[in-house]
Nucleic acid binder design. Sequence first.
DNA 1: GCGCTTTCCTCAACCGGTAAAGTCCGATTC
DNA 2: GAATCGGACTTTACCGGTTGAGGAAAGCGC
Lengths: 345, 345
Amino acid sequence: MTASPSSRVTIKDVAARAGVSKGAVSLAFNRKPGLSEATRDRIFAAARELGWEPNLTARSLSSSRVDVVGLAICRPARMLGLEPFYMEFVSGVESVLTEHSCSLLLRLVRTVEEEAGLLESWWRGRQIGGSILVDFRADDPRVAAAERLGMPVVAVGHPTLTGSLTSVWTDDATAVTEAVRYLAALGHRRIARVGGAAALGHTVMRTAAFDAAARTLGLAGAWQVATDYSGEAGARATRSMLTAAPADRPTAIVYDNDIMAVAGLAVAAEMGLGVPGDVSLLAWDDSQLCRLTHPTLSAMSHDVHGFGAEAARTLFGVITGSGPGSHPVPTPVLTPRGSTAPPRG
Amino acid sequence: MTASPSSRVTIKDVAARAGVSKGAVSLAFNRKPGLSEATRDRIFAAARELGWEPNLTARSLSSSRVDVVGLAICRPARMLGLEPFYMEFVSGVESVLTEHSCSLLLRLVRTVEEEAGLLESWWRGRQIGGSILVDFRADDPRVAAAERLGMPVVAVGHPTLTGSLTSVWTDDATAVTEAVRYLAALGHRRIARVGGAAALGHTVMRTAAFDAAARTLGLAGAWQVATDYSGEAGARATRSMLTAAPADRPTAIVYDNDIMAVAGLAVAAEMGLGVPGDVSLLAWDDSQLCRLTHPTLSAMSHDVHGFGAEAARTLFGVITGSGPGSHPVPTPVLTPRGSTAPPRG
DNA sequence: GCGCTTTCCTCAACCGGTAAAGTCCGATTC
DNA sequence: GAATCGGACTTTACCGGTTGAGGAAAGCGC
């Protein structure tokens, strides 16, 4: 990688053209005081004429600030592509980064350990000024790594999972409870849940909340399984639930993402079961996908774009030295559509 | 952004600890000849003990090589999240970048002009060593920009769209022709197509190929519309096609992506039309989504991950100075599933 | 007219690496 | 025994900015 821009214009050329020193150009471009209006204008004019922009590499070397934040995502590529969550989250992150002329360094990794290593490498190599961490699991190695390195990070996950790191999170337990209460209020007694990856902290929390809610409401057949979030796993789980003996068969199923709910809908159709007549389905995240099916999918809905934006804002806070904190974003709310109704009979 | 790693270990510290000069450490870490085995080992040991990794910022400043490639994607955030194509493409790109210890700088932009400006800024600011350009349109400003800047880029798009830039592309015209011929062979005479964004070059090419194929096969009612790729637009287009007078109503519809095909499936269901009995649907790209519906969606299928990987490989070729070239990747092939069948009657 | 600020700008030392030229030294050659 | 050579490092000059310590000129009070 040694290709170089055709125009090797540097601050020196600009300085020469404007008839000032390098220092003056630097002052002008960093909007610092100590230059007359006239000189400043001359400098900008010279820069414009030469098509010069400060070399960010050199800048971050001398000022030791890096206008790049890292994001490593650890899920199989196959699942990532389908998960609308991430792209929306990333776009929210971007929207805030852009305001700060900051860029996003993205990497897809296979394991948390690999991710922890990557973060360390990025940080040690001064490639990033901070990082957003997602998909926390119990005893996540990244907590210790970030603390040890003193790297500014924002952890997207419940405070109980993210140790002393500043966190941004949704109250999934409350949302799960609301989902279950809603279905129970419709009259469902056998409610099942197709959860996400068991290793992920928020899956554990949702699972516990689901159990608790079912107990509270006196629902006997609260049946949950963990999956890998893929549509295929969602279909498989749904199939095994809907082929259970009639007395055990759930009349409502809650999914941990949209994809699995879509897959569940297909399974119901394939088995000749009506939705919501024979079984109600409730999705999670509520991407547009939920409005593209027939029937449309009821979902626990939240603003994923805003979630990403808040994570980025919080990261800037951490970088500029605000103390650790916990930043809840709005709890997902139930958005009823065509896939939920009282159980038949 | 002035936070700094707790450990301000530099090459100097490592050199001191190993009892050598900075230069020696540099030689060791760049695997260059001129050091004895013993010294090299001592240097690596010292680096390991101090937890040092070379500061990539400093390295790229002095060596003027940048191990980062840029990717700007220009589509509304809302659509991006749903489009499995991009994440899969990115994951393919990543898989190759990782082998070269190279990172991906990602940005979502709103317009091509904004993108062209961003690329220039990235390049001028030495943030990237090259870039992958996607979603070409006619007279795309990025072609001129890349040439003017002398920036290594690989253009993902048909050579007719990408000027003198090295390109990586799929033969969409042939794929469209295959799709139409397949549907015609099943007996369909009224075939429609729900296309992507009209501004995009490959939409134009697919549209032309569709027209040509229909003419060749003597199909009267070849009906096409352009959309913005969103599921909603796909649903709207499908609805208007399926509500046409019986004599005009298409018996088969080809979509330009998966999402719109899923939406089309829902529209058919909502209208009480059977798929594939009353209308056949054919998706494009063939993400896993196509296997999660009922019926499953027949699709023009290609290896998007491999497409991304090839783009990245080609970019490395450009960066290391290989001449311009044109790199076709395999043409999408028809993968029949449950959503296509001969027309009723 | 003299000292004292202020304002505006220059100078030179970094930041942490790379790379080309230079040094040292034991082995080989004639 | 002097000249040559190559291996193993070291030295030093950058890369392109930032930054803090000056310094010259203008303005001001007395």
